[in-house]
Design a protein around this nucleic acid. Structure first.
Lengths: 246, 246
DNA sequence: CCTCCTGATATACTCAGACAAATAGGAATT
DNA sequence: AATTCCTATTTGTCTGAGTATATCAGGAGG
């Protein structure tokens, strides 16, 4: 047992294959490996990283499952083109936002959210149950009580949006929006890290809630769109797109 | 070396861990394993399947990467709740549609597509380049030449929609819509398996194309919405939702 | 000169068995 | 009853060997 060395840095509860997957994943996301680029062999790679081939291979399996890699005997392991990546995968989003996320992709996510959530609000207005409505209301109350600058307040905000998604009764929409919402909430954390929020978000949320309560689909859609528009306006990243909405 | 038996059925080029992942994945998707249910231990499972623990573990890693499983020492490996699954993962969609897909989820996918693609058409109308427009046109020509009942025609249809997505200049939207689009095309195959298409889809496509060419965002959105509405009307699954659009 | 086969070879894939690490759950203690 | 500690169980990691497969070079045939 001569070499009982650690990999390099003491990671939290993560297993080795998870840290390798995360490291390789972020390396690919940040462009340190280009699409089409060939990886070194398993033996060399695992040796260089100071881990067993087993752990390295399991890491590669994870990245293959996320559409980032491809591996075949004799051909080796190479990075797939970007359009094959599952960029909406929650773990991948977490990797992106752990580092310095690409502002262009953040814009993409907000844009996608702007497409998804108003539609979700509309479906929710049509299909919500009274129980779901009640959960939304208490979440909104909590949000007002604690404010968005506290963890409790943000959790309440999450609950509110999640319940809207659940009320859509659309699993696909729900899965998607929860991923995007989580990613966007990372940026919200960024926002609050720099400056405290300048605006009270409660009225927008209440308007959406009222519309859903009244089963007013058009108002729900419009209210959510307005909410997102205001939220986006609070952020600095609005500037990446030179041309406005027109 | 007493038992050199094969796993059971001769799979095509798939590796062992891939087939195990697919089998377990479909078993979970079809409800043969319920959320929260505990798997048997790795040794028992790999032994029962007649494969090595390595291969079984790599399969489990894949399913964990897709949000279907969770495993911790001493606690075992268990199925995660449905809302944790990455149901938009292309591979998962393929697994679903390989068997008898849940009609409720198909409805969800169509609904999601109805949200995504009109928005994508709108973005495409605003941001498309002339080159992208040219590709759309040739795709449309091919589609007209071969018809949707031929593989070439369907490929052209795919190219048309994919180019719209590329023209949105939104990676997140593109990744999402390509997954959903692929899944929906499986159902299109289903449709044509039963009955040949009763309607000429070309006019709808041309309308969308014209709008994108003219950079008419509203018309592009409306045209795409209409296209999807008609496509959905062709399918049998419209009946799952008793209440119409209103 | 090109196409098709054929085999050598590099690479990932699979296997078996051992050991390590972590943690859930119970036992002992306060 | 709450807390601490122990232990047994399960996943995690390692090693080294052997297998399968696809690429690539080189030759046979057109």
């Amino acid at each position: 047992m001569a070499s009982g060395r650690k990999v390099g840095s003491e990671e939290s509860g993560l297993r080795i294959h998870q840290t390798i997957a995360r490291d390789l994943g972020t390396a690919i996301l940040t462009g340190r490996y280009q699409p089409g680029e060939l990886f070194e062999g398993e033996i060399e790679a695992s040796d260089r990283l100071g881990v067993s081939r087993t752990a390295y291979r399991e890491a590669v399996r994870i990245l293959i499952a996320k559409g980032m890699l491809e591996s075949r005997p004799k051909a080796g392991t190479r990075v797939l083109p970007r359009n094959r990546w599952n960029v909406l995968d929650p773990e991948m989003l977490a990797w992106m936002f752990a580092g310095e996320p690409d502002s262009r992709f953040i814009r993409d996510l907000f844009e996608l959210r702007g497409v998804i959530e108003p539609a979700a609000a509309e479906f929710a207005a049509r299909r919500r149950t009274d129980e779901q409505l009640a959960v939304m209301e208490t979440a909104l109350d909590d949000m007002g009580r604690y404010g968005l600058s506290t963890p409790e307040g943000r959790a309440a905000d999450q609950r509110f949006h999640n319940m809207i998604l659940a009320a859509t009764r659309n699993d696909a929409l729900e899965a998607l929006a929860s991923s995007v919402g989580a990613a966007v909430s990372w940026t919200t954390t960024f926002k609050h890290r720099k400056k405290l929020l300048p605006r009270d978000p409660l009225p927008d949320h209440r308007a959406v809630f009222q519309a859903i309560a009244a089963r007013d689909t058009a108002a729900a859609r419009a209210g959510m769109a307005e909410l997102l528009r205001l939220a986006l306006a609070d952020m600095d990243i609005a500037l990446v797109e030179p041309n406005g909405e027109g």
